[in-house]
Design a protein around this nucleic acid. Structure first.
Lengths: 159, 159
DNA sequence: GAGTATTTACTCGGATACTCGCTGTCCGAGTAGGGCCGG
DNA sequence: CCGGCCCTACTCGGACAGCGAGTATCCGAGTAAATACTC
């Protein structure tokens, strides 16, 4: 059971978009080229980010995507949830209520110990992802990676 | 993207097996009956736990499963990994090495910031699951649940 | 030369196939106990 | 009544279908810029 591959793509693209000048956009086609990804599917992934309000899309020539907010205001968790969905990793099916000796209604007011542990672990996972923003990714990236991205962006046909 | 449903089943069955007397076993059929689960598929799930060394299986009449270790020595994480696999939730495809401006070998000695965050979050998730054992689940369970399980176990045809 | 209508090329957006893993099921090998037969 | 043999019933174990989410792709609507034409 893996996270969708699009999550990784979305995070990398978010990082790349944070290196644009204000107001500038970058097309899905360019990003797919930079990372060697299938353009059509990447477009689908980025569309999810637009729906979630994390990216803004500009149609037409010289159009593309840009961050809808400042990089400091976009967390890794938001991007993950935009692609993967807000549904919990662990879904309690309440099997304790089934069978010949089902749990009573009063017992089920609180989640069972198993669900509690799973929810707690998932909360730890989400909290870690929430503590990192796109800006953090950019500031902690190696200078080599940053220079490569900026250089490639400048090499694109201007305007 | 959900965790396999078998994870929940395995955890509940582990909890139930911890209520057996030493040396006693409980068949897959009985457990499926108790939780209202498809017997064949539950058997498949429990088989994974045997492969992982968490459960012991006894074939033949009056056979079944029992915990391979003391409940205090079996963590929730071990059960999850036995079903779901030891592979990480996030799998870095190293897309930074692809495209027209690939990352250099020296840059890739360390994981990129994105992979680092994902691994850190996953580590937090696993650590939480590792801190809880089957014995903890049993001790924190409501008295109602415990009594229901014990009572049902005693109601089974003896020997 | 300047303004304008047209063409063009490029973008995102939604609707449509394909693949693989989780879900679900089945039947076979093996065993422990119970029953039957003989002494 | 007692011992041994056989048989049955029940268990786990591995191999075989079905479905849904993720993967991948295509074409259409819309737009901004560049172009060509007219005045």
């Amino acid at each position: 059971m893996f996270l969708p591959e699009g999550v990784e793509w979305a995070l990398h693209c978010g990082w790349l978009l944070s290196h644009l000048e204000p107001g500038e956009t970058l097309s899905s086609r360019r990003m797919a080229e930079f990372y060697g990804l299938p353009p059509a599917y990447l477009s689908k992934v980025l569309k999810s980010l637009v729906r979630a309000g994390l990216l803004e899309a500009v149609t037409g020539p010289r159009g593309g995507f840009r961050l809808a907010r400042a990089p400091e205001e976009i967390t890794v968790l938001e991007i993950v949830e935009a692609i993967e969905g807000r549904s919990p990793l662990f879904r309690c099916m309440e099997i304790r209520q089934r069978g010949p000796a089902p749990a009573t209604k009063s017992d089920c007011l609180r989640p069972c110990g198993i669900a509690a542990v799973m929810y707690q672990a998932e909360s730890a996972w989400r909290n870690t992802l929430r503590e990192t923003t796109i800006a953090d990714l950019a500031s902690h990236a190696s200078s080599g990676s940053t220079n490569r991205a900026r250089g490639w962006l400048r090499s694109l046909p201007e305007r």
